[in-house]
Design a protein around this nucleic acid. Structure first.
Length: 492
DNA sequence: CGGTTTTGACCAGCGC
DNA sequence: GCGCTGGTCAAAACCG
């Protein structure tokens, strides 16, 4: 057997996630979500709420050698810990984005991330032409040579940071999946497989084949510790329309990266608004998103969405009353997810959505949505096999708590950014709802189904988002291409 | 027969 | 400079 495929059982003990504290970023340059006719300028929002930002993660300062900044946000795998090695790979494809990136300050360093290209999974302003050019530039003109990078690392941090800026963000999704890969709706072609260091499970490399020029890649690897967990890492930006069944994952990755961007730019601390299971200094719980890990190394900044654990534990029950399904049951996202390749998730989801949304969403009580619609369902992740649970055990909300939670949530820059990203992408696709907005990132971490249907809800629930002007078309569950069967169309 | 998967080889970045 | 590693290529095999 080839050496590249030989089993390397060497297991590194890198479970200790390392992170670096960071100083406050004073400025947030304009984050513009330009999508069609909508432009959202969030800088004011960020500034207004900067004082509310709180450190979230249990920031460790163990290892300064590694430019790995990870918030301990729930379970992490050795693979993720080793992402620092993976992330060292220079992605020359992003070099062109240096000049129009956002600034991320981590550990007092300033990192820039490209605005246009950082959104993994969802195309934005990047045109196929641009993508092609970027791709071509991969081979033509890396702005800085590897030797230059090395020199900069030893002599000039600024140059190094610019190298960081050139790296494309990645979004890793950890999810329970029995199939060889997640059914994320896209059409992928496997182009390689390798045994990655530290994990005997082979890592498969896929590229998107929905468009010949689509630069999106993903690699899939099983978690060594739990073979039922599939870690899918997305990189790149689709330059084509996505099928509805692919919107969910694309939305997740996009929103996650948006959070990464916004958090990076709005606060020095890697307090990205995500719950941390190890946080010791949480004065205020953040708004809820799945267990999420951010990391950045010498290469790709990576956000890991851990959908395998009941991330919204009782720690966040206060806020789960607003944005989470009731936790009376061991609510594991994985339980709601079905990424099995054999799943008929798309059609099922459509059925679920029609059923649940119609029956529970518009009952006149906005705040019942979170209780009746679990987060992951709102994010199009949910599958109907657990739908019966949705209707049970509604918590009694205290308006005071709701208001408090709302304030917390809306003041979080990550939320704001994700909200803006979701809104802009949705609104940008004029005349369509979710189903039509095949490229629309919805969100991760909050029920954007709110946003999709009732524009009036947003100002009321998210008062600090009141300066966002938008006019959503009705929820288009019955509009646009049918989701049913779409996944199978892209899967063989 | 066309598309996809497999898999050995190759390349580049990085650490030592 | 060398070895390790991640990532990609491309020919052969496979499949519907």
């Amino acid at each position: 057997m080839a050496t590249t495929l030989g089993i390397r059982s060497k297991i590194k003990e890198e479970n200790t996630l390392q992170s670096k504290s960071s100083e406050s970023a004073d400025e947030m340059d304009q984050v513009r979500q330009e999508n069609g006719r909508l432009k959202l300028v969030l800088s004011n929002m960020m500034k207004d709420n900067k004082t509310l930002q709180q450190p979230i993660g249990n920031i460790k300062d163990d290892d300064k050698e590694d430019d790995l900044v990870v918030l301990s946000l729930g379970r992490s795998s050795p693979l993720e810990a080793k992402s620092k090695d993976q992330l060292r790979k220079v992605n020359k494809q992003e070099d062109d984005n240096l000049n129009h990136g956002l600034a991320l300050r981590l550990d007092g360093r300033s990192y820039e991330y490209a605005v246009d290209s950082i959104d993994a999974g969802v195309s934005k302003s990047q045109s196929p032409r641009q993508t092609e050019e970027d791709s071509l530039n991969d081979h033509k003109c890396p702005p800085t040579s590897s030797t230059g990078l090395k020199a900069s690392r030893s002599e000039d941090d600024e140059n190094l940071l610019q190298q960081h800026a050139a790296k494309k963000a990645r979004v890793a999704v950890r999810a329970v999946c029995n199939g060889p890969t997640m059914n994320d709706g896209c059409q992928w072609r496997k182009y390689g497989q390798k045994i990655a260091k530290g994990n005997p499970c082979p890592r498969a490399y896929y590229r998107c084949t929905m468009s010949p020029s689509c630069p999106v890649r993903k690699h899939v690897q099983r978690c060594q510790e739990d073979l039922s967990i599939l870690i899918t890492t997305y990189e790149g930006t689709h330059n084509h329309a996505l099928p509805p069944s692919a919107t969910a994952m694309a939305s997740t990755t996009s929103a996650a990266v948006s959070m990464l961007k916004s958090s990076s730019t709005s606060t020095s601390q890697p307090s990205l608004g995500f719950p941390s299971t190890t946080s010791t200094n949480i004065n205020r719980p953040p708004f809820y998103v799945p267990n999420t890990t951010f990391s950045t190394s010498q290469s790709h900044p990576t956000i890991t969405l851990d959908l395998t654990t009941p991330s919204a534990s009782s720690r966040y029950s206060r806020y789960s009353s607003t944005f989470l399904p009731p936790q009376q049951t061991p609510y594991s996202p994985a339980a709601c997810l079905n990424f099995s390749a054999a799943s008929s998730s798309s059609s099922s989801f459509e059925h679920w959505r029609n059923h649940n949304i119609s029956s529970s969403l518009y009952n006149g009580t906005q705040l019942q949505l979170p209780s009746q619609t679990p987060l992951y369902q709102a994010n199009n992740y949910s599958m109907p096999h657990k739908s019966t649970r949705v209707q049970t055990h509604q918590p009694q909300f205290s308006m005071e708590k709701i208001a408090d939670a709302t304030k917390e949530i809306t003041s979080n820059p990550s939320f704001q950014s994700a909200l803006a990203a979701a809104i802009s992408s949705i609104v940008g696709k004029k005349g369509g709802g979710i189903a039509e907005n095949m490229e629309s990132p919805l969100s991760v971490g909050f029920p954007t189904s709110h946003l999709n249907r009732t524009s009036t809800i947003v100002p009321s629930i998210f008062p600090q988002a009141g300066n966002l002007k938008f006019d959503f078309p009705p929820f288009a569950s019955s509009k646009g291409p049918s989701v049913a069967g779409s996944a199978d169309n892209f899967r063989k």
